[in-house]
Amino acid sequence: MANGQLIFVSGGVRSGKSAWAERRIRESAGSRKVYLASGQAHDTEMVKRINRHQEDRDGQGWVTIEQPLHLEKALPYIERGDAVLWDCATTWLANELYEGWEKGAPCADQPGCMETKWAALQNTIQNLQSRTKLLVIVSNEVLDDFIRDEMYQRWLGRIHCWIASQAGEAYEMENGMAQKRK
């Protein structure tokens, strides 16, 4: 089976990228609308926020899969012909890079740790693409600023460049307007 379409969309906070991505999924010919969420709730406000978004989507027939770490674990729940929205690469990276920090041993401090996770992510994205009708990857613009966390920002740049190179279409979201870059 031919690979499904891959779309990359990135933008600032509240730029409308998620709503745009959801619309692309709704308008696609995917058999199910799947929301692959990387967000983790760290406080009650976050729990409420996540629940509210999920209820909104459930009402519109979405299937939500929460997979903050190890995206490959979501693969068995993806069906052939699904339209999948992955939200988002920035959150996933933070989760993976700092996994184990509470034990004093974050992945970021262990040689080769992130490299392994990155290889797994690339495989997972290609795997997702091979079985979905449409895969939309959402991310954030955080590289037009002073370097605050070099390892995080370097990885994010690398991930974004790779996703953009793999994508059939890539968009930069400016206040609700999708600028096509590819």
Binding site: E141, L143, D144, Q153, R154, G157
Partner: peptide, 12 residues
């Protein structure tokens, strides 16, 4: 003179 411009780690 040519300028290549963009955010950090964007592949400039």
């Amino acid at each position: 003179m040519h300028i290549v411009f963009g955010g950090a780690f964007n592949g400039k």
